[in-house]
Measured scan of single mutants.
Amino acid sequence: ELREAFRLYDKEGNGYISTDVMREILAELDETLSSEDLDAMIDEIDADGSGTVDFEEFMGVMT
Protein backbone atom coordinates (compact mmCIF):
# COMPACT_ATOMS: atom_id res chain seq x y z
CA GLU A 1 0.00 0.00 0.00
CA LEU A 2 2.83 2.43 0.82
CA ARG A 3 4.60 1.51 -2.40
CA GLU A 4 1.43 2.36 -4.34
CA ALA A 5 1.21 5.72 -2.57
CA PHE A 6 4.88 6.36 -3.35
CA ARG A 7 4.31 5.54 -7.02
CA LEU A 8 1.52 8.11 -7.18
CA TYR A 9 4.03 10.84 -6.33
CA ASP A 10 6.96 9.32 -8.26
CA LYS A 11 5.35 10.28 -11.55
CA GLU A 12 8.49 9.66 -13.62
CA GLY A 13 9.09 6.25 -12.05
CA ASN A 14 12.68 7.06 -11.16
CA GLY A 15 12.56 5.72 -7.60
CA TYR A 16 12.45 9.01 -5.75
CA ILE A 17 10.38 12.11 -5.21
CA SER A 18 11.68 15.62 -4.72
CA THR A 19 11.75 17.18 -1.28
CA ASP A 20 9.37 19.83 -2.68
CA VAL A 21 6.79 17.13 -3.41
CA MET A 22 7.39 15.55 0.01
CA ARG A 23 6.83 18.95 1.59
CA GLU A 24 3.46 19.21 -0.21
CA ILE A 25 2.48 15.73 1.02
CA LEU A 26 3.32 16.62 4.62
CA ALA A 27 1.44 19.90 4.37
CA GLU A 28 -1.64 18.05 3.07
CA LEU A 29 -1.44 15.50 5.90
CA ASP A 30 -1.20 18.17 8.59
CA GLU A 31 -2.36 21.64 7.59
CA THR A 32 -1.26 23.07 10.96
CA LEU A 33 2.46 22.63 10.23
CA SER A 34 4.38 25.86 9.94
CA SER A 35 6.96 26.49 7.24
CA GLU A 36 9.69 26.05 9.86
CA ASP A 37 8.20 22.72 10.97
CA LEU A 38 8.10 21.53 7.37
CA ASP A 39 11.73 22.58 6.82
CA ALA A 40 12.83 20.67 9.92
CA MET A 41 10.89 17.58 8.88
CA ILE A 42 12.35 17.64 5.37
CA ASP A 43 15.87 17.99 6.79
CA GLU A 44 15.23 14.93 8.95
CA ILE A 45 13.60 12.89 6.19
CA ASP A 46 16.27 13.68 3.60
CA ALA A 47 19.08 12.54 5.89
CA ASP A 48 21.60 12.24 3.06
CA GLY A 49 20.87 15.77 1.81
CA SER A 50 20.24 14.58 -1.73
CA GLY A 51 17.20 16.79 -2.28
CA THR A 52 15.16 13.69 -2.98
CA VAL A 53 13.22 11.16 -0.93
CA ASP A 54 13.58 7.51 -1.91
CA PHE A 55 11.12 4.78 -0.95
CA GLU A 56 12.97 3.83 2.25
CA GLU A 57 12.97 7.44 3.46
CA PHE A 58 9.30 7.73 2.49
CA MET A 59 8.45 4.57 4.45
CA GLY A 60 10.22 5.95 7.49
CA VAL A 61 7.93 8.96 7.46
CA MET A 62 4.69 7.15 6.75
CA THR A 63 5.03 4.36 9.31
Score class of each variant (00 low, 15 high):
E1D: 15
L2A: 05
R3P: 04
R3L: 14
R3E: 15
E4P: 03
A5S: 09
A5I: 15
F6P: 01
F6M: 02
F6R: 00
F6S: 01
R7T: 13
L8I: 11
L8V: 14
Y9F: 09
D10K: 00
D10W: 06
D10T: 02
K11C: 13
E12C: 08
E12T: 10
N14F: 09
N14W: 08
Y16T: 05
I17S: 00
S18L: 05
S18Y: 06
T19P: 03
T19N: 07
V21T: 12
M22F: 10
R23S: 01
I25C: 04
I25M: 06
L26A: 02
A27T: 08
A27K: 13
E28N: 13
E28S: 14
E28A: 15
L29I: 08
D30S: 07
D30G: 07
D30T: 09
D30E: 04
E31Q: 14
E31A: 14
E31V: 12
E31T: 14
L33Q: 03
S34Y: 03
S35C: 10
S35V: 10
S35K: 14
S35R: 11
E36T: 12
D37V: 10
D37Q: 14
D37C: 13
D37S: 08
L38N: 00
L38E: 01
L38I: 13
D39K: 08
M41K: 07
M41D: 01
M41L: 12
I42P: 01
D43G: 11
E44F: 14
E44T: 12
D46M: 03
D46P: 01
D46S: 07
A47P: 14
D48G: 08
G49V: 04
G49W: 03
G49H: 13
S50W: 04
S50C: 08
G51N: 06
G51S: 04
T52H: 12
V53P: 00
V53T: 01
V53Y: 03
F55N: 01
F55T: 02
E56Q: 10
E57L: 12
F58M: 03
F58Q: 00
G60Y: 15
V61K: 05
V61Q: 04
M62Y: 07
M62G: 04
T63I: 13
